[in-house]
Design a protein around this nucleic acid. Structure first.
Lengths: 322, 322
DNA sequence: CGATGAATTGAACAATTGTTCAGCCATAGT
DNA sequence: ACTATGGCTGAACAATTGTTCAATTCATCG
């Protein structure tokens, strides 16, 4: 598109000279709608950058409360919205900020490929870090979900940072424990898993036990979910289910998983949980309380549930929130 | 006001998290209108900064045309609006940009105190240049006009740059030629005028001969204006009237002026005219054509009149403009 | 202690901005 | 040549943002 020039002109006329879309359209011989679209494009393309010169963080109180309650290294809270898509976007943006802050200039980053992590992608501005590598925490799952498969996810993540991406050539959940063992013994798989286990940073979603609270749980059969619940599972990180003490839930299902064990991933120093929603509060609380994860990216509603706090509001009467 | 913190929070929620004013109000326990006002304040306070990452200049063609036609060093063109106040604002903003670009880090800047120059003030962001001095081109006029007197103007200008400001202790127009001579011989006046004459940069308005086209002309009697017109005057710079050849108009009026002569101000290397409006086209054209001024800050309509150009429009049909 | 006036508030209104949708145009594939 | 297909357009509608104005609060002064 050679409209960069035009986008810039229109952006200047609107943001610097304060002209309305209609006035710009009249001046340049464009329709108002066209001007509106050029401006939206310009913002998406990053031609328009809005900076806030203030150290204030609107959700500082909730972030501090999370850090205090769970002894975290850091926490990121994003606003909640009635419209679920907007909340995904919002948390994704916070996740992108977290990544910008934490991704090192060299070393390895382990990634739990989940829809929460996928939500981060659209908000990553290219920022070259050629000397890092992104390694999946576990194998890939089959079908598409939310229009995103793990390959694509890892690739986009890598390309945003200009970094290497590794692939774990196995399903996240093999059909039998024996098949799982076979995959785990594959040299390629072992190598990649060793790399992930030695990572400096881990970013992963934390799933709950409800349907719709994670791609994986959704794919299990009713019997399998029942069994897991009976075994005390309250949530999972990349298919590794844990109980209220944060310990793994052994069993046939666990043996089918191709991916880092909870013990192995706990060896990674910096471990960020990206997770939100009422379905996931219990799982997330456990993961943070037991130290499985030591940082979190979540939304206001979830943060309030976790901390028991009521308000972000400054002075008097709070009203309905999101 | 200790609301800086709040302004920052609100600005973040709106511009970074994309929340509407209503949503922010609900979250923080404020009314929507209050949020709207906080955001407006934040923008005015510079907490919100909008940058356009593009080299495109919407009025490049007109600026280039002006530079080419008159052999100028540079030209600044701002959009015109149907609402006169908005056009003043617009040109004032362009003037501020011009100042940012041209005001040196050390030396002297001569200022023609006029309403055009006054329009620049609200758009100056503080930018310390402690080693420069602002010197008026001429004495001060008596009454308030557009709520701005020359003292105030010079003071604000100086304080925006953290610079020294000088004052010329005399009226711009003495009551008689003799009184004028007396003022000009005053040591303080001579000294300040000498300083102005040796300036590196000059910024001044260019007035036309109509009433309402300048504070000064407006203050003259009908007889005085008739006489000036008869003598061939087409405009003025700080009370120094000039004819179509850019030469001074001698006479009793000229002898009453306390301020730099046209010859003296022509010795300043960089001379910026800040002027716009149909009343001033003839005067501005003369000032630029004869080289009295060698840079200009004006609006689109005036620029079009000066260059004979029709359009800023890119492609096909242009429509009504401002 | 009440009067006065400036500053602040939010409801109602006005303007601007954003989105949807049906129609149009161009391209490519029969 | 004829028609799908997909992108592009702007009119109409919907939502958000900005402004005005009367009411109110609050501090100050008589």
């Amino acid at each position: 598109m050679e409209s960069r020039e035009l986008q810039g002109r229109v952006a200047r006329l609107h943001y610097q000279h304060g002209m309305t879309h209609q006035e710009i359209g009249d001046l340049l011989g464009l329709s108002r709608v066209k001007v509106t679209r050029l401006l939206a494009d310009a913002r998406r393309a990053g031609i328009v950058e809005i900076r806030i010169h203030s150290s204030s963080n609107p959700f500082e109180d909730l972030e501090t409360a999370l850090v205090g309650r769970y002894g975290l290294q850091q926490a990121w809270v994003a606003p909640s919205f009635a419209d679920a898509r907007r909340t995904w976007d919002s948390v994704g943006m916070a996740g992108a900020e977290c990544l910008r802050a934490l991704v090192p200039t060299t070393g390895t980053v382990a990634i739990g490929l989940s829809s929460s992590v996928a939500a981060i992608l659209p908000h990553l501005h290219p920022e070259p870090r050629p000397d890092i590598g992104f390694v999946p925490l576990a194998g890939s799952w089959g079908g598409m979900s939310r229009g995103m498969n793990p390959h694509e996810l890892a690739l986009k993540l890598g390309s945003a940072f200009g970094a290497r991406t590794y692939h774990l050539p196995a399903p996240i959940l093999a059909s039998t424990p024996e098949a799982g063992a076979a995959f785990r013994e594959d040299p390629g798989v072992r190598e990649t898993m060793a790399l992930a286990g030695g990572a400096d940073l881990l970013i992963a979603g934390v799933g709950g036990m409800d349907r719709a609270s994670g791609i994986l749980v959704d794919a299990l059969s009713a019997a399998e979910r029942t069994q897991l619940a009976a075994d005390g599972a309250v949530g999972d990180i990349s298919a590794r289910f844990f109980d209220t003490d944060g310990r793994g839930v052994p069993g046939r299902l666990d043996e089918r998983v191709v991916g880092l064990s909870l013990e192995a991933l706990s060896a990674i120093r910096h471990r960020v949980a990206v997770s939100f929603g009422p379905h996931k509060v219990a799982a997330l609380d456990t993961a943070l309380r037991t130290g499985l994860m030591n940082m979190v990216v979540t939304d206001v509603d979830t943060a309030k549930s976790l901390t028991g706090k009521t308000g972000t509001a400054l002075p008097g009467t709070e009203r309905k929130s999101g």
